[in-house]
Write a protein that binds this DNA or RNA. Structure first.
Lengths: 339, 339
DNA sequence: ATGAAAGCGCTAACAC
DNA sequence: GTGTTAGCGCTTTCAT
């Protein structure tokens, strides 16, 4: 078939053991036979068979990274951080996208399981009804799993790193709120935990302030630019009295909403304030620029990478959840003054 | 070590061959032994070792996809298309990012070479001085390689799919140009072929129109939001008379430039027209929205996926280069009227 | 410094 | 319908 180590050994007039030593640079080999082998490697374009190596319990130092959607900057920025951390430790990533499909997720993970990958970092919120939770719990008996921005209870080697989204939303609402008004709306997709968490916090905030939270305060939309446009349009059509305020479950939603309202002639932030969530890079570049909750995505990724590598080395964190900081970023799209 | 097929065979009281038949669902096995084995698989959480399978020439149906930067939407959108095509054919992707570092690129490819992956799709422009060209040519003796938006001469199994960027820039300039004025500037990074191609076309256009192209027409900046901001600032500091026009080597540059100029109080498009390149999703959502050249990124990705799979099946295209269409998209950021 | 050989976990050809 | 066994290409221990 292809040019193997045996061929190489034959051509060099040595045994495979010697070749192996040269390839892996361990064990001692006479300098000139070493050179002869190395030259042959180059000439013949010899490349070791990864599967054969893998069979010998050689760690391939790869981590499976599961994300929903590569086009969503949230994931891209987190993965960027993961990569940064892993590269420093000599680890490589195998990136898989699930398109938010639980079956795809399961299949992809199974494909990578057992030696192809030393474990998984799974990025992003889980579905409110998480069909793969038990599967992951079972898997974490053998393989380390780090969940970024989500949490599953149980699972021996499963750990989470996340931002306290409930608290963050509470802070954001405290900033947005004006006197005794129930004019804040949340845009998001409640089939995802990230949104249900935010909604709970929202309810809680209104309750504490003796305000009445209703389902009217929720506008259902998918977590994309396009979803944001649709959600904003829906809200606009209600002809609500200005000013009102929108808090979005993600920056992509917020950017879509921003553009839609601007196109409809709405003044932002004078008539409508918009707040995003995550602080993806482009949020600071819109006009008006977007107020948001900075989840420090790159660092979040980095931390999860380091956490994973610690787990591999059996240095387990004290808690199953590690909280990562967030920060309210006020830019031009919100205006908390009473108009 | 881990629970292997031998353990499973022992526990089920059968031979490994029988287990293998059940696992791979080929060959005939009595129904109740089959069930017994399947149950054991579940109970013990047995997972086949991917490396051992790989050793038997079982195709793992994976493609290595190499991109420069996951945070750059250009790559994300292309990869999205590749994924779409590959999924339909039962192929999986292993995504690697190089951070524009040729050594990283080489290392990552070597890691995946030989059986871990059936070939490569390499996305994005190559450096003007491409140190890995020979490496890739050599590799393409054995493995299929599809280059997206770049071209390397030679390489038996290496094929390109790309947009005619030179022509696209020519069209864009024809649209931007006003009477006998040399007030168009290009922002980009000439260390990448994508920019040198555009600059050549620019020169050519000016020549044909009897206008004088100078290095002043080029502003050097990296292909990122941040690069765009810096480039625009540099240009602004020249205190050029309005109106003038900017054509950017990428949409990320254009979005950064747009924001920077807006922050400096420049009126767009009245004083400065800005045109991007690629049409990433967020380009339509800026204010003003961005005029650009639509490279139809998702389709470009799809096509390259299908091309790759054809090559695997030894259905080679007639030419080494396949051109993909582009389209000039005029939005709000340009104004070709004389002011 | 070098070689022989066992073994990694699986598949598939062959025998029964 | 089921078992035996020879590889797949490499690493590594044990001799020499």
């Amino acid at each position: 078939m292809s040019y193997t180590m045996y061929d190489l050994a034959r051509d060099a007039g040595v045994s495979v053991a010697t070749v192996s030593r040269v390839i892996n640079n361990n064990g001692s080999v006479k300098e000139d036979t070493k050179q002869r082998i190395l030259e042959l490697v180059k000439d013949k374009g010899y490349i070791p068979n990864a599967y054969a190596r893998g069979m010998n319990n050689i760690s391939m130092k790869t981590i499976g990274v599961i994300i929903a959607d590569i086009v969503n900057p949230f994931f891209a920025e987190v993965v960027n951080g993961i990569e940064d951390a892993c590269q420093k430790c000599g680890y490589k990533l195998i990136l898989c996208t699930t398109a938010n499909n639980p079956d795809t997720e399961k299949k992809e993970i199974e494909m990578l399981v057992e030696k192809l990958v030393e474990g998984f970092i799974i990025v992003g919120s889980r579905p409110s009804k998480d069909n793969n939770a038990d599967f992951l719990i079972g898997l974490s008996n053998t393989l380390p799993i780090v969940l970024v921005n989500s949490f599953i209870k149980g699972g021996p080697k499963m750990f989470s790193i996340l931002v306290d989204e409930g608290k963050a939303v509470y802070d954001a609402l405290a900033y947005l709120k004006s006197e005794n008004e129930t004019n804040i709306y949340i845009l998001g997709d409640p089939t995802w935990k990230t949104t249900t968490i935010k909604i709970s916090s929202f309810k809680n905030f209104y309750k504490k302030n003796n305000l009445n939270f209703t389902t009217n305060n929720i506008v259902n939309c998918s977590h994309s630019y396009c979803g944001g446009k649709k959600g904003a349009l829906e809200l606009f059509k209600r002809n609500l009295p200005y000013p009102y305020k929108i808090i979005c479950s993600s920056d992509t939603i917020a950017i879509g909403a921003l553009r839609e309202l601007l196109s409809l002639g709405v003044k932002i932030p004078e008539q409508v304030s918009i707040m995003g969530f995550s602080n993806i890079e482009v949020s600071s570049l819109t006009t008006p620029s977007l107020s948001t909750v900075d989840q420090k995505l790159f660092e979040l990724g980095q931390k999860s990478g380091y956490l994973f590598i610690n787990i591999i080395h059996e240095k387990y964190p004290l808690n199953k959840k590690t909280y990562s900081e967030y920060e309210l970023i006020i830019r031009e799209s919100t205006n908390s003054r009473e108009v």
